[in-house]
Amino acid sequence: MFDLVVIVRVPEPDDVAPVADALARMRPLCLAEDGCVSWEAYQSEADPARFVLVERWASREHWEAHDAGEAIQGIYLPEILPRVEREVHPSAPVRRRDR
């Protein structure tokens, strides 16, 4: 599995609603891609200009192939990326280590 967490901040208040809409439109496209196990976008209730994307892919290769898909090419790059600041974090679940 390849897990990814993306933290997004929208600096301009007028861009928050368009970014939220674009993320909602991305979800079904991402879920339909080969290797997408789950894809969720969350908007902070405390700070509506902050979003967290939590993605799980079957492999890093599947995630890398996702860059060529409609969600990224048709929505993320033209509609979201110009409006946001982001942090991309390949991540792993925290597990208890036995002593």
Score class of each variant (00 low, 15 high):
Met1Ile: 13
Met1Cys: 10
Asp3Leu: 15
Asp3Pro: 07
Leu4Gly: 02
Val5Tyr: 04
Val6Pro: 10
Val8Glu: 04
Val8His: 06
Arg9Ile: 02
Val10Ala: 10
Glu12Phe: 08
Glu12Cys: 10
Glu12Thr: 13
Pro13Asp: 12
Pro13Phe: 07
Asp14Arg: 15
Asp15Lys: 00
Val16Ser: 01
Ala17Lys: 09
Pro18Ser: 10
Asp21Lys: 00
Ala22Leu: 08
Ala22Gly: 09
Ala22Cys: 08
Ala22Ile: 05
Leu23Ser: 04
Ala24Arg: 14
Arg25Thr: 10
Arg25Asn: 09
Arg25Tyr: 02
Pro28Asp: 08
Pro28Tyr: 07
Pro28Ser: 06
Pro28Asn: 08
Leu29Lys: 13
Leu29Asn: 02
Leu31His: 00
Leu31Gly: 06
Leu31Thr: 07
Glu33Thr: 06
Gly35Phe: 06
Cys36Glu: 03
Ser38Arg: 12
Trp39Ala: 09
Trp39Leu: 14
Glu40Arg: 13
Ala41Lys: 02
Tyr42Phe: 14
Glu45Leu: 13
Ala49Glu: 05
Arg50Lys: 14
Val52Leu: 12
Leu53Met: 14
Leu53Glu: 03
Trp57Leu: 07
Trp57Ser: 03
Ser59Met: 02
His62Asn: 10
His62Pro: 01
His62Ile: 01
Trp63Arg: 12
Glu64Leu: 10
Glu64Arg: 09
Glu64Gln: 12
His66Asp: 07
His66Ser: 07
Asp67Ile: 00
Gly69Val: 07
Glu70Met: 02
Ala71Glu: 06
Ile72Lys: 10
Gln73Cys: 01
Tyr76Trp: 14
Leu77Ile: 13
Pro78Cys: 02
Pro78His: 00
Glu79Ala: 05
Ile80Pro: 08
Leu81Asn: 07
Pro82Lys: 00
Arg83Asn: 07
Arg83Gly: 02
Arg86Phe: 09
Val88Lys: 01
His89Pro: 01
Pro90Tyr: 03
Ala92Phe: 04
Ala92Thr: 15
Val94Phe: 14
Arg95Phe: 04
Arg95Lys: 03
Arg96Lys: 10
Arg97Trp: 08
Asp98Ala: 14
Arg99Ala: 14
Arg99Gln: 11
Arg99Asn: 11
